[in-house]
C-alpha cells in the first residue's frame, strides 16, 4: 500500500508513519522538518520517501504535488498536519491566525482537490482528514483553531459524495487530546499528560478506522462520549471547556 502523510515528522503523523512502516507499507512522509524523519529507525520493513513541504506556502504544496506526477497512485492519504494558537482571541496577532488558516484549512483543501480526480489516487482509496474533538465540544481559548477544524470537518462532509464518484472514500477523524509536544505546548498549565492518549495508540485506532467503512470516527471512548455530550448539550459542553481550558490559560501561545 502506498500512503501519503502530511505533518509526518512529529506527533500523530510520526506515529502513523512508524506504524505504517512497521506494517511494511510504502510511505511518503511530508513535513517542513525533514531532519527528524531521516533519523527514523531502520528496523521497519516498509520504505519511506521523505518530502519537504511548507504547508503555509501554496507554491511549496504545488511542488509537492508535482513530485507525485507519474508515480504510483496513493491508496491512503492522511491530511494530518495542523497547528494551533491558544490564548484569548484578541491577544493573538492576526498573522498567527492567517498561518493557522493556511495550514489547517487551505492546505488540506488544496491537497485534497488536487489529489482526487487526477489519477493520483488509486481506485477505492481513502482520504483521511484529521479534524478535532473541538468540533463537538467547542474550544474557547483556541477559537480560530476550532474554527479551522470545524471548517475541515464540513469540507470533508461536502466532498464525500463527489469524491465517491471518483472512487475515493472520505474519513474524518476527531481525535481528543493526544500526548504530543504540540498538546503540551498548548494545554493549560497543570493539565495531566497521562490523561491524553498516546500517539501510538491513536495511530493504530485511526489506521483501523481507515480500513473500515465509516465516514467519521471519534477515536477512543473518551472522544466518543465527549462527542455525544457535545451534541446533546452543546452549550454546557462549551461552557465546561471554558472552565477547564480558557480560564486556566496563562498567556497566548502561537
Amino acid at each position: 500500500m502506498r500512503v501519503l502523510i502530511t505533518g509526518a515528522a512529529s506527533g500523530l503523523g510520526r506515529a502513523l508513519t512508524e506504524e505504517l512502516l512497521r506494517q511494511g507499507h510504502q510511505v511518503v512522509a511530508a513535513d517542513r522538518e525533514t531532519d527528524s524523519l531521516e533519523n527514523m529507525p531502520m528496523a521497519h520493513r516498509g520504505s519511506c520517501t521523505i518530502r519537504f513541504v511548507d504547508l503555509e506556502s501554496a507554491d511549496s504544496i504545488q511542488r509537492l504535488l508535482a513530485s507525485f506526477q507519474g508515480q504510483q497512485p496513493f491508496d491512503q492519504v492522511f491530511l494530518n498536519a495542523g497547528i494551533s494558537a491558544t490564548g484569548k482571541f484578541e491577544e493573538i496577532p492576526a498573522a498567527a491566525y492567517e498561518k493557522l488558516i493556511a495550514v489547517n484549512l487551505f492546505a488540506p483543501i488544496y491537497l485534497a482537490s488536487r489529489l482526487v480526480g487526477k489519477e493520483l489516487m488509486a481506485r477505492n482509496s481513502r482520504i483521511v482528514f484529521i479534524s478535532s474533538l473541538s468540533h463537538a465540544m467547542g474550544y474557547p481559548g483556541a477559537s480560530v483553531y476550532a474554527a479551522t477544524k470545524d471548517g475541515l470537518a464540513a469540507y470533508a462532509r461536502c466532498v464525500d459524495k463527489p469524491f465517491r464518484k471518483e472512487r475515493v472514500r472520505v474519513l474524518t477523524v476527531f481525535p481528543g487530546p493526544i500526548n504530543t509536544a504540540h498538546a503540551k505546548r498548548h494545554a493549560p498549565e497543570g493539565s495531566k499528560a497521562s490523561k491524553r492518549m498516546a500517539p501510538q495508540k491513536m495511530a493504530k485506532l485511526i489506521l483501523r478506522a481507515a480500513k473500515g467503512k465509516s465516514k467519521t470516527y471519534y477515536p477512543g471512548s473518551k472522544a466518543y462520549f465527549g462527542a455525544l455530550f457535545g451534541k446533546m448539550m452543546p452549550g454546557l459542553a462549551t461552557r465546561l471547556m471554558r472552565r477547564g481550558i480558557y480560564d486556566k490559560l496563562k498567556g497566548p501561545v502561537y
Binding site: 473541538s134 479551522t148 469540507y155 466532498v159
Partner: peptide
C-alpha cells in the same frame, strides 16, 4: 448536511460557526 458543489464555501461558513461558538463563550 454539506453541499457537494459548494465545499469550500460551506467549510468557511462552518468555520465561522465554530468561531462564534467558542468566541461567544470567551466574550
Amino acid at each position: 448536511k454539506g453541499h457537494g458543489q459548494f465545499a469550500t464555501y460551506v467549510a468557511t461558513k462552518a468555520a465561522l460557526n465554530g468561531l462564534s461558538r467558542s468566541l461567544r463563550e470567551e466574550w
